[in-house]
Design a binder for these strands. Sequence first.
DNA 1: GAGGACTTCCCCGCCGAGTT
DNA 2: AACTCGGCGGGGAAGTCCTC
Length: 593
Amino acid sequence: MATLVKAQSKAMTSSTAPDIAAMTWLEAAEHILKQEGPEMHIKDLTERVMNLGMVNSHCRTSLETLLYRQSHKPHSKFKRVIGRMGWFKLSNSVIAENNLSQSLNCCDEEEEAMMPKSVIVHKRKSKVIRREEEYGDCNREPDSDESDSSYSSTSDDEDDDDWSMKYRHIKGFAKRLIMTNVSLASELQSLENEISKSQQEKKYLLERLINKQSNARTTTTTNKQDQSKQATPVGGGGGATSVKVPTTPSNSNRLKRPLPSSPPVSHKPHPLTTPPTRSSEQRLIYNAISEPRDLFSTSSSSSNEEEEAAAGKRTGRALKEGTTKQNKASKEESIGTGGGGRKKRVRRLQAIPLHEDGSPVFPIKLGGLQVHSLGKVVWDRPSFHNERYIWPLGFKSTRSYPSMTNPSRRCLYTCHILDGKDGPIFEMVSEESPDSPIRASSATACHHIVLKAINEARDKQATNAGSGPEFFGFSHPSILNLIQLLPDADKCTKYKPTIFQQPLTRGKAHQPLPTSTDHKKPLLSSSAKKKEKPIPDSSLVGGAPLTVGGGTSDPSLAPVVNQLISYLSSDSDSNSNEYEHELVIDTSNSNRN
DNA sequence: GAGGACTTCCCCGCCGAGTT
DNA sequence: AACTCGGCGGGGAAGTCCTC
């Protein structure tokens, strides 16, 4: 009997509480619905999940949103109960899967051998009743007619019924699998057709490209010969480049449009030097087939946009981007740069609280990341910046992240950029072990150490996933923008500034953030400094008052003070004496280190 | 009109794949 | 190995619609 209880409790634990702490809302909801009933109201469901502590308490309830959204997806696990507002149920496929696994589990002979007959009978009985409720008649054989009486008869009858039930269930499951397979096969077929079409298009375009190239060479040779014969230049010269377009088997509409390589030459004064304007779609094809720049490279009138495209498309990556980034245009786009082949990216800023003068309110909170200090740009040491980032000395941020010792718990990591002999030193200090900071020569290396430790604690293989800059926060658009605006940032020669878009807003209007595309101005203007009010306490973590100008002997405050000094010194008109307000600065973290 | 139901938009973090 | 990029799903917030 003790064994039975043990087995039952084991089964219960494995089926009712599978790593509850690590569950998401959807997993928890699925679990509850599987365990407690086919349908449930959103409020009850939420309450059960909360009561059982199945999700992290810090998560705000959004099960409602999630379930509504899920219910719109074609293959979602959740369905709405028609006619009952706010009620949800599991989709049939999930129920079937659940029942199949249950039936497979339940027919574990060893387990059943240990159970008394009455328990087994009751279990099977309830199982069948539940299936009948859930499936209705969909899986029922025309001749099947089960009744409760069958369970009260002999044990042989029970076994037969049970096996026939399992047989029908598996049969139904197999049918569904076959249907899925058929639909997937047809989808595959259509995709293959599309691929073959694309290949034909590609072949056709390549043919045209080769044609065009050979014609261009011929024209160049002819022109040279003409020039040697005549002193006058070739006017409207492109006439010679008219290309006989080969016929193509492709029926694509796209190909019916005039392509850049075959402009109406008679109307173009310099078809070789003036590429026709293209739609974005045309440009895409243009990029994708890597049409040689040679055709237009002699032109001084080629747009900068094309310069970039040409620079990019020479690499395989750019070629790939040409096809995959089409839909990302709204998020990040390439724009003209004014030459030099530099590619500037437009990224969207996130709204951050600003003072009246446009300077940020510290700490800057961006999700799990808090930036306490931007630090100071070290422009005269090349190792403190690269093409993509500037690593300001004294940069300080904190981030909530899984603990290295117990990954199910989150702890606070403080990130610093320190001064090393050869360049910046990236330091991460875990809240749990402040005495053993992790230091590395790159942010990613630092982050990798943490990631490795966490993965080891989780018994997971370490991956190369993750980004140090992301972790530290200096790759975040809003932070990057602020760093770009720091004094001396423009002196970092290797650094290629990023262009930012103002954040999208819904409802409340935010104060527009300063960007590097705005007129360059220091984060704190002198007039603004005069008006500067103490930073509200609510935005700080245990702030301690500090009078600037009075000095501080605490070396740990140096980055903070440096930052203030850099602000103050950024405006030549400013006088530090004018800055008389008592500032409240977050010193708690500085003291911690 | 109030409150609940539902939708939409955006941000965040994880992680795999690709590039340097 | 270090780093970047992009996809994807979870989650929050705010808006709109609907019912009583």
